[in-house]
Amino acid sequence: MRFHAQVDVTHRPGIADPQGATVERALPALGWTNVSKVAVAKSIRLVIDAADEVEARSQIDDMCRRFLTNPVLESFTVTISELTPSGADA
């Protein structure tokens, strides 16, 4: 089976997010004075072939822990959806 996965990588609490901080400082200039807690995160998308969704998720979790994220600095969430054989969802 083939799956599309989206990995969202966010800063752990206490880790600096200069892009988020800069965007938050800029928003009031356009009138949005009501915005807080802006965070700029990283999104990694990939397609993976695996026997089933459990296997796909397990492999992606492993990738995240060993390579895609640094657990000292970052946390992650994984969203998976099955692709149709024609790849129409891709």
Binding site: A16, P18, A21, V72, L73
Partner: peptide, 9 residues
């Protein structure tokens, strides 16, 4: 450990 962006950015 790890190295993160400088305080003060």
């Amino acid at each position: 450990g790890a190295l993160q962006k400088n305080a003060g950015l």
